[in-house]
Design a protein around this nucleic acid. Structure first.
Lengths: 185, 185
DNA sequence: AAGCATTGCGCAATTG
DNA sequence: TCAATTGCGCAATGCT
């Protein structure tokens, strides 16, 4: 069970140095551990957000994956062998934690996991495309509405002038009528 | 120092099986290597997109990192030991490419690299916040314009009725005048 | 309970 | 050289 030494040491040192930045969902809790805040956009604070088993597993399992390399064949491969790698990552104390050959219950290890990941990646791409389209549509709609607005205002201006003209015309008529009536009498 | 055996082998097998999916920028080139297309949102195809030195390095260097673990202290650690991993990842041809203990020139390895990454992460968070705000503003503007539009249309309706009324009134006056004139004569 | 959809995040490539 | 953007995969979470 000791993940404690060797490479780990450098890791820990680094962590100390680097103030492990994590992803605490930002919105929720934000004042739990004393830490210097780097102002807006400082590092996201670090500590295990998820209390569920799986997360802890990942934590212990280490799973070095290498996700964003452009040449991803290698990428995929790396992800596959999470545990195997952990073997090397946790050097000397080769004794414990997840005997390595045991993929307990659900997944996280291989085929099943990769299938899940791949499906999710597809869903993510789809969702983002959708979002992009939505945003674009909103922008177009805004522009369109702006134009429409402009022409409506022109229309209003026109109608207003017309009303004014008609009213003016009528008032003139009234004056004339009044005059002629008075004259007649 | 033979990196040749064990974990690596499984990795390679997986790569073959899994048809390395990569990130070819999707927009650019898309028919270079024969591969089954999984339809829209299928996997992004794999092959080295970037012809520049650094990219190749990474390719070869492999750098398994493990970025998104919630418990990131481990994460950071993994990144730390990039090269060490490559040792295992690039199995047989243990002969060449980056002797492993040599961090050539610039960085990729440690402190410097982490600083760059951290700065970029901050920039990314900032940029995304900005984008979110921009999108929100656009949406609000669209809604606002829609409301404005609606009231402008009401205004137009009102003015139109007014013009109609005035015209109708005038036409009536004309009729009366014509009548009275005719009568007078 | 299983699965797609969303979302926040970090990495790396690209842009300016 | 360096911040800003952008595409992408991962994992957590929402939703059904």
């Amino acid at each position: 069970m000791s993940i404690s030494d060797s490479p780990a040491s450098s890791i820990c040192m680094f962590a100390l140095h680097h103030q492990s930045s994590l992803n605490p969902d930002s919105s929720s809790m934000s004042a739990q551990m004393p830490q210097m805040d780097t102002g807006l956009y400082g590092q996201p604070m670090a500590f295990p957000k998820t209390p569920d088993g799986r997360s802890m597993e990942q934590m212990m399992g280490f799973m070095p994956y290498s996700s964003c390399l452009t040449p991803s064949s290698t990428e995929r491969a790396a992800q596959q062998n999470q545990q195997d790698f952990s073997q090397f990552l946790v050097p000397p104390p080769a004794s414990t934690l997840r005997p390595m050959g045991q993929k307990r219950g659900p997944s996280k290890d291989s085929v099943e996991y990769r299938l899940r990941r791949e499906r999710n990646n597809i869903a993510v791409r789809k969702s983002r495309d959708k979002a992009r389209r939505r945003i674009q549509l909103t922008q177009q709609r805004a522009l369109q509405l702006q134009d429409e607005n402009h022409s409506l205002q022109l229309h209003i201006q026109h109608l207003s002038h017309e009303v004014d003209a008609l009213r003016h015309y009528l008032s003139q008529r009234h004056l004339q009528e009044n005059l002629s009536e008075a004259t007649k009498k």
